[in-house]
């Protein structure tokens, strides 16, 4: 954040996102130009249905883009094969893992899959990376527990550890704070902030926790129907970008307290 000339991890040029169904294009958002730098924590905020998930799905190559260009570490997303992409970008999704009978260690170790041999054996190097990911997320005490024994907050930390073990420059999380109580929401976002400082990885997450994101993120991506603006929280507040986030007849943004409140 302090140095804007830092290495660019993810960049989009005139990106248009949306759906193509039988030659009919539904454009969700267009002319998206964003740059994410190394070691930044970036929050993506916007109203329900505005297209946050579509944007994240496009950036992660789950869904094809309509127009424009996305590049990770200066390499176009189109030229990545599955394995190389998995070594550059890791995900934490909203969906539950299919099998909750895995131990926490087993689950985190699955993050090493893009690097392991045909049968998935862990080398000494893999083990040390897995253990490091476990200690960075402070889940050592859960290591041998099974996933069905964990609370939602613990499980989210485990999923973050798994993404860390994948050892990518960029980690993208889709609404990592849903289902969590107020304490754990703050805890997870604070953890993400700490991880960007400790590991110098770039972390992008979508969230409805705008208040917390303003306090913790280096940059915020504010997504509205007309555009996507990326800037520091302070600049967003100065320029009043949060005001266009929701219809103002019900909730308004208070620049003084840096939070939303109900328009009574």
């Amino acid at each position: 954040m302090s140095n804007n000339n830092q290495h660019i991890v993810l960049k989009t040029q005139d990106l248009a996102i949306g759906y193509k169904h039988k030659k009919v294009e539904t454009v969700v958002s267009k002319n998206i130009n964003i740059e994410l730098h190394k070691g930044e924590l970036i929050g993506l905020v916007g109203a329900n249905g505005i297209g946050k998930s579509t944007l994240l799905r496009t950036l992660t190559k789950v869904q094809p883009m309509l127009l424009g260009e996305v590049s990770i570490n200066n390499i176009s997303l189109d030229t990545f094969n599955n394995i190389d992409l998995a070594k550059s970008l890791s995900l934490v999704l909203t969906e539950q893992v299919a099998s909750k009978n895995m131990s926490v260690f087993e689950l985190v170790a699955l993050g090493r899959q893009p690097y392991t041999n045909w049968v998935g054996s862990l080398t000494a190097n893999d083990l040390s990376i897995v253990n490091k990911a476990i200690s960075q997320t402070t889940i050592e005490s859960l290591k041998h527990k099974r996933c069905f024994e964990l609370s939602d907050g613990q499980l989210q930390k485990v999923m973050i550890a798994r993404a860390l073990a994948q050892d990518t420059d960029l980690i993208i999380l889709d609404e990592p704070t849903t289902h969590l109580d107020m304490y754990h929401k703050a805890y997870i976002l604070k953890l993400l902030q700490k991880l960007t400082r400790d590991t110098n990885k770039t972390i992008l997450f979508s969230s409805h926790e705008i208040d917390l994101s303003i306090q913790l993120c280096d940059k915020l991506m504010v997504m509205t129907e007309s555009n996507v603006i990326i800037d520091t929280p302070e600049n967003h507040i100065k320029q009043g970008n949060f005001k266009s986030l929701f219809p103002e007849d019900l909730i308004i943004f208070d620049s003084e307290t840096k939070s939303f409140r109900v328009n009574k």
Binding site: V62, D84, L85, V97, L107, Q166
Partner: peptide
């Protein structure tokens, strides 16, 4: 991990 996670692991 489920299909989407599996895809994200290459």
């Amino acid at each position: 991990l489920g299909e989407n996670y599996a895809k994200s692991l290459g």
